[in-house]
């Protein structure tokens, strides 16, 4: 029989992991909800940002915060570049072409990273204190990324609900033509959305490099999970994706202590497949 304290610790770790996953899932989901294209290579952009932090901090000795900010800037720039170079020319073409284009980017980025940096795993380890909360072990290296993720998500929420541009992003996702009649250039709105989505990828990369080691195939490690979270929450549904992030991270984390992390992923996939049949519109979709 497993000690309940381990389960409690796994649950806490699940919450901590869920925050960063939510950042990834909401970034991908924002772009999908507005532009209607799934960026298959989203987590591969995150991978590039992780490498940037690794080189700046570990190799060139930049302070952590400066490396993180650089990754956020790189993420936003990558978001803009992906939109202008890859998405914009194929807007309105068949969905299969859109999948092939962003899928092609994925293979390009993976090969590019392998060529430049080999398949070595690289990581940045910080030695930060841990806290003991009634027997539950709370390492700051996980609490800080969680807190930053939550703050970023609150900022995203305020941006989307309180500002003209943020509200326009939500409006364009409902009726692009009507938003044009309001005087907004839909292409500008798409560009802002891609920049914000890219910025979130950059921030996620800046946090993940302190939790995982980076390698050219990092996208394959978290990409499918991120995509599953978006589908589970309902593609384009931000609140759904947020909730689904924590459901998935809890499954992986708790199954991880009960059996193994691999088993956690297996269970997460099974839950995902079952849910697709039970609630194809996502966990928060209205019935009927």
């Amino acid at each position: 029989m497993i000690d309940p304290i381990f389960l409690a610790e796994a649950a806490v770790n699940g919450v901590l992991l869920g925050g960063v996953l939510a950042l990834l899932a909401l970034g991908l989901n924002l772009i999908f909800g507005v532009i209607d294209i799934v960026w298959i290579a989203y987590v591969d952009l995150v991978m590039l940002c992780m490498y940037l932090v690794y080189f700046l901090v570990q190799v060139y000795g930049w302070p952590v915060w400066a490396g993180g900010l650089a990754a956020v800037a790189l993420g936003a720039a990558l978001g803009i570049a992906v939109h202008l170079l890859i998405i914009s020319p194929i807007l309105g073409s068949a969905p299969i072409n859109q999948l092939l284009a962003t899928g092609g980017l994925l293979f390009f980025l993976q090969s590019f990273a392998t060529f430049l940096w080999t398949t070595d795993h690289r990581s940045v380890r910080l030695s930060l204190p841990s806290y003991d909360l009634g027997g539950i072990f709370l390492p700051l290296t996980r609490v800080i990324p969680f807190a930053i993720s939550i703050l970023a998500l609150v900022a995203l929420y305020l941006f989307l609900t309180r500002t003209f541009v943020g509200t326009a992003i939500r409006a364009v996702s409902q009726d692009r033509e009507a938003m044009g009649l309001m005087g907004a250039n839909p292409h500008r709105i798409y560009l802002v959305t891609s920049a914000v989505g890219g910025l979130m990828a950059g921030l996620a990369g800046a946090l993940l490099i302190f939790l995982y080691s980076v390698h050219p195939f990092f996208g394959g490690q978290l990409g499918p999970l991120t995509f599953m979270i978006c589908v589970l929450g309902g593609l384009g549904n931000m609140v759904g994706a947020f909730v689904a992030s924590f459901i998935m991270s809890e499954i992986i984390s708790i199954a991880g202590v009960l059996w193994s992390t691999e088993m956690g992923y297996v269970i997460a996939f099974v839950v995902f497949i079952v849910m697709i049949f039970v609630r194809p519109g996502g966990i928060l979709a209205r019935r009927g």
Partner: peptide, 11 residues
């Protein structure tokens, strides 16, 4: 003001 109103329904 377009035909069918074209509001943003969830806003």
């Amino acid at each position: 003001v377009p035909e069918g109103r074209r509001l943003f329904p969830t806003l």
